[in-house]
């Protein structure tokens, strides 16, 4: 019996992180120090924070690559602490990483994308269906026969995403998958993430670019292994002073709006984009 592509199944349609603590073996400091969060399916979540804040560790805990030291992670209702269930989590929560070169194993794009479904032991016809579906969704059908090694960085990252989607996951976790890409490719990937959410997939996107985070439905800020902020982009990203304290680079627009407010002008508190700020000139 096959799970529906967009449904988590009976266990609930979210990733729930409860009191999660994690320490790397041999390290005296905790990478995660009691994190409570919920990531919904069908929404685009951005995860930001300075280097060492615990973003990647949290991402890896959510797809059961790392087991919690304490607390628990329920991915689609499945507890990642239980070893036999981890495989089930890998099926439902797919992951893409920063450097596509380290993720390629196939000699053609098609083989590359088929790698995951093949590992699930699916029938050839089902593998075919999934590969075709994933290539189509990502918009790279024309690359099917090409060698991954000879593609551009941006194309390679799209292949990695197609490979993840061929698992028909409920969640896609992107660990800085856009940081090596140029603007055109990055925009393509972020637009794809937004489309995928309307198809019911939950996206958790770890990024250094606050301009990307501003496009998400919700933003989580981590600092020192704990949640330092969460909410809609307009709530979380509009206070440049707080963001600086958290080691983040505030959006230009929020810095200018902050200076205007300090000088006694009434600028709305949630301005994030250029057009909104410029419209204040004529308001």
């Amino acid at each position: 019996m096959r799970e529906s592509a967009a449904g988590c199944g009976a266990g609930g349609s979210s990733i729930r992180v409860e009191g999660l603590r994690f320490s790397y073996p041999g390290s005296s400091t905790e990478a995660l120090r009691g994190v409570d969060l919920e990531f919904r399916q069908g929404a685009f979540h951005a995860l930001v924070g300075r280097n060492g804040s615990g973003k990647s560790t949290l991402a890896r805990c959510m797809n059961a690559l790392l087991p919690p030291s304490a607390g628990r992670v329920l991915s689609c209702g499945i507890d990642s602490a239980s070893a036999p269930d981890r495989r089930e989590i890998h099926k439902r929560v797919a992951m893409v990483f920063q450097d596509p070169d380290t993720q390629m194993v196939g000699s053609t794009v098609e083989e590359e994308v088929a790698f995951g479904p093949e590992n699930l032991g699916l029938e050839p016809a089902e593998i075919r269906r999934r590969v075709d579906g994933a290539l189509d969704r990502v918009g790279i059908v024309h690359l099917a026969g090409r060698q991954p090694a000879r593609l551009s960085q941006g194309q390679k990252q799209l292949v990695a995403i197609a490979g993840a989607l061929a698992m028909e996951p409920s969640f896609l976790i992107s660990d800085e998958s856009t940081s090596m890409l140029d603007y055109t490719s990055r925009r393509k990937v972020v637009e794809l993430f937004m489309e995928l959410t309307s198809a019911g997939i939950g996206i958790v996107h770890v990024t250094h670019f606050l301009e990307e985070a501003a496009l998400a439905d919700s933003v989580v800020i981590l600092d020192g292994g704990a949640v330092a902020g969460r909410g809609a982009p307009a709530e979380v990203l509009s206070d440049p002073v707080r963001l600086r304290e958290l080691g983040l680079d505030p959006l230009a627009v929020t810095l200018v709006a902050y200076e205007l407010r300090r000088a006694g002008h009434q600028v709305p508190g949630d301005v994030l984009d250029v057009k909104e700020l410029v419209s204040w000139l004529y308001a």
């Binding site: 230009a252 627009v253 410029v278």
Partner: peptide, 21 residues
């Protein structure tokens, strides 16, 4: 810039808009 796969940083976009005014 977009035809070169790049874009202005938000600082630049803001200043360009302001120039327009």
């Amino acid at each position: 810039l977009s035809s070169l796969g790049m874009k202005l940083p938000q600082w630049g976009e803001l200043v360009r808009e302001l120039l327009g005014s």
